[in-house]
Design a protein around this nucleic acid. Structure first.
Lengths: 97, 97
DNA sequence: TTGATAGGCAAGTGATTGCTTGCCTATGAT
DNA sequence: ATCATAGGCAAGCAATCACTTGCCTATCAA
């Protein structure tokens, strides 16, 4: 699947998706239900399971989340690789990020 | 003016706004009309002056563009400061950006 | 096999967004 | 004074987005 840089920016534009990444950064490899309940507990985000699932799809399309199936369970892992050099294009030439 | 991090992500989510930043990174301090004509010439973006003006407002709200008035002219300057450590929160602990 | 759990699909809705249109003010040249 | 230039304000519109609702499949435990 080809990931465009615009997908990454768009994925990061939503606060709920950024919180999902926060949560996965703290505890990687959670299932959809785990993410839902923890978002509610810790952040007061009361979106439905389907809403979170759709957010995870957007994050996966951006390459920021990778998934692994195991039976009934689907585990979600953060992948920070698309964040590399994401904003480098707007820095003054010759400057290191 | 208080700049929230979400404003930065939202500002970067639009391809036209990213192109505006590209253009300012290459030639800083352009006026609105200069930006409009150069976007059309170089990138084939044929949005109206008002559309570009609204994009510049969003970029300014995000702190990514600063302006300076001089008579009839308003010059636009890129400010990459909000890009600093923007994505650091999702990197594995102890890793340098 | 029955029921519960984990997740998927798709249509519908309300809010936001990007953009246009129309008109206005301010500055500077002639 | 007149006119062109540079930009601003605000309403309207179509497309997109986040989210819900309703129903479905798949896996596993009892």
């Amino acid at each position: 699947m080809m990931v465009h840089m615009g997908d990454v920016f768009r994925a990061l534009a939503d606060p709920t998706r950024r919180t999902i990444l926060d949560e996965l950064a703290e505890r990687d490899g959670q299932t959809l239900f785990e993410i839902c309940s923890r978002l509610t507990m810790k952040y007061g985000i009361s979106s439905s399971r389907q809403a979170i699932s759709q957010h995870l799809d957007v994050l996966a399309d951006a390459g920021l989340v990778r998934t692994r199936r195991d039976g009934r369970f689907k585990f979600h892992y953060i992948d920070p690789a698309p964040l590399d050099r994401l904003t480098e294009r707007w820095r003054p030439k010759g400057e290191r990020q």
